[in-house]
Design a protein around this nucleic acid. Structure first.
Lengths: 385, 385
DNA sequence: CCAATTAAACTCGTCCCACGAGCATAAGGT
DNA sequence: ACCTTATGCTCGTGGGACGAGTTTAATTGG
């Protein structure tokens, strides 16, 4: 392993980052954005072609002048495997540096036992490894729980104990990047979804409990050990109520299906998500009142987080979308009332996520692409070509 | 203005960043940290010497081997002026690239009118500009209020209307970097204070109200318009109490002098800071109970923010330090009780800030040094030598 | 259909910088 | 004195960014 020369692949990396973030971008556009001279653009693309990182195809002409080329992933270039582990199913996609999915699939778990599920993921990694060989550079994984140094610390919806996720890639030796699903769907929104272009974005998602992320310049604030973004466990709620997480007064106790059941004086549901969906379909006054209470708690909390973080935009995922839709005026009132005065002139828009079911997989793909297009990663790849 | 060649001063910038963040660092240490070969180190330091950015002085020998040299700012090198605007006074310091203060001073405001204060700052900028000429590259300013694009939006302690801070440097044409004082003291802690080395640090400061910042890799999360970090206005408190900020149930209503007065059933103080200090000096049971209540609210809230952000460390400034010290067990209990279970094994330490009164000035200096040591800034300087 | 126009790609030569190899130097240790 | 050790210095090489000049492939207009 010869150490890589400093700055060697700097510009090449910059180019690939553009290609991965704006798929279908042309060479001329990249050169403009990076303020590269045409000679440098020629040179760097040639170099990237030589090491099988890019191919160029003629771009449809746009008016006068010599037509430029579209930069695309090389058919023998590096790829990543993105995985999305969910409560009852899992999905996978093979991604190339231009962010296109070479293949993807979705399967249900036969058993929910952690060993079975992880071994399925492991088999998928090994299948991809066989198929793509050394082209497979990294595996990224979105999982529904708190993640810390590639370990799943707690996964309420799966009811698993603490778990080392690296077993999934252990036998292949491919690096693993694991992330929380809510965090990664936030990344997807910030990169290519409703929060695209935002410098600071706050993403909140309600499923069983409430998760989220603060995303700054496309990078999630992961915290010291990757457990950042647990906004559901901030004490916005009733301090006398204790939460399974160990704390008291957690916000998510006021938001999800369990809160609806409490307001409706029904017994705590086994599946709070399905229960919440059912309540949202009801048309009686009691249900409407319960939903309004929950939506008010949601709006107030979001306003508090907007005060704290001053985001450009807030995006909502999961049940937060139908909840808000079911009581829009309650939401608006609570949100505005909770903002500091100077925010009220132009409150950050609260938008529905656009990637919805694909969010975590798209976010995992984005994280993997960050890895693939980083300078050291490119330098290593180039040295092996 | 010839555009700067890409990567031209990359390594030089890396070296200067080390010098500014670890004053007194040796050439050999820089080379080790940056994994530079000795030849590259020789070359880059020579280049930096030629353009009057560094000087080298023999370092005290450390055992065997040829002694190395300490890297210091060049006596004719670029400098920055850091300013700290406070309620009753202001301070200034001239900083060189090795983070040393060439001079500093502290003066009281004669009048609190914004025009008078700003004109004093302006005069100081002009004095420095006369003294240092083209060596003065940037002015940074810490101010006690919400700052947005170099405008002071609201400054509760100064009672000023919205204000353009760029007037301070307008006549000299030197770039201005303005920032919130709590944010900048957080930066100082994260760079060279109690949170040094932390990837994610949360800094909270209690004065009149509560402010703070989330600092990730030494960079504060400023938000869309620079108003990020208003943790005092997150609804951790009693939702029936409304806050002057416009929201309800704000955390800082439970923390500062106003909260103490409420608990003691005394009238709201004109100067909550002085009032809190007075209560902290009292020895009666009622005062102790009031302090304990406030400290419990502080600990609970901090725990919630730790859940949300998963910081490596939390630093406290201002009144938060004596408050916690006055009711240490209350704090500890509330803090631990508010954490999610998995944080309790190794809860992030909550430390007292070490820069205390110097925080904002040190933070402003750090921000200015970031500018001075950036690649474009160095390239521009070098081109002018 | 053939210039003229236009935008972009290509070629060449230069400059700058990182670094490996080998040598020189200044300490402490024996 | 001489060895050991860590570091600095010199020289030569190679890569990459880019300016200047040239070529190419499209549209536009006669």
């Amino acid at each position: 392993m010869t150490p890589v020369r400093r700055g060697q692949w700097q510009t090449a990396s910059d180019v690939l980052v553009r290609v991965s973030r704006q798929p279908g971008i042309t060479r001329a556009a990249v050169a403009r954005e990076l303020r590269l001279s045409t000679s440098s653009a020629t040179e760097v693309t040639a170099r990237l072609r030589d090491v099988r990182l890019l191919t160029e195809a003629p771009a449809p002409s746009q008016g006068r002048g010599r037509p430029t080329t579209v930069l695309r992933a090389h058919p023998q270039g590096p790829v990543a495997l993105a995985l999305d582990l969910r409560q009852g199913s899992w999905r996978s996609a093979v991604v190339s540096v231009d962010a296109s999915f070479l293949e993807q699939q979705s399967k249900r778990h036969r058993s929910r036992r952690s060993q079975v599920v992880l071994s399925n993921l492991q088999k998928e990694v090994e299948r991809a490894h066989r198929q793509y060989g050394a082209r497979l550079r990294v595996v990224s994984l979105a999982a529904p729980g708190t993640i810390r140094d590639n370990r799943l610390m707690q996964a309420p919806t799966l009811d698993w104990a603490e778990l080392d996720l690296e077993t999934v890639t252990a036998r292949t030796g491919i690096p693993l990047l694991a992330g929380n699903d809510a965090t990664l769907s936030g990344v997807a929104e910030a990169r290519t979804g409703a929060a695209a272009g935002a410098g600071t974005a706050l993403h909140l998602i309600v499923e069983v409990g409430l998760g989220g992320t603060l995303i700054i310049d496309g990078v999630p604030a992961q915290g010291a050990s990757g457990a950042g973004g647990e906004y559901g466990h901030v004490p916005f709620g009733d301090r006398t109520r204790s939460c399974p997480c160990g704390a008291r007064g957690c916000w998510d106790l006021d938001i999800d299906g369990r809160a609806l059941a409490r307001h409706l004086k029904e017994t705590a549901p086994d599946d709070p998500y399905a229960y919440a969906e059912a309540v949202l379909h009801r048309t009686d006054r009691a249900a409407a009142r319960a939903v309004a209470k929950v939506v008010t708690a949601l709006g107030t909390g979001i306003a508090g987080l907007v005060n704290a973080h001053d985001p450009d935009v807030v995006t909502l995922g999961g049940l937060a979308i139908p909840l808000r839709a079911a009581a829009e005026t309650s939401f608006e009132q609570a949100y505005l009332a909770g903002l500091m005065t100077f925010h009220r002139n132009s409150p950050p828009p609260v938008l529905s996520a656009t990637h919805q079911p694909d969010g975590p997989l798209r976010g995992a793909a984005a994280m993997a692409l960050d890895h693939l297009t980083s300078e050291p990663s490119i330098a290593t790849w180039a040295a092996s070509q």
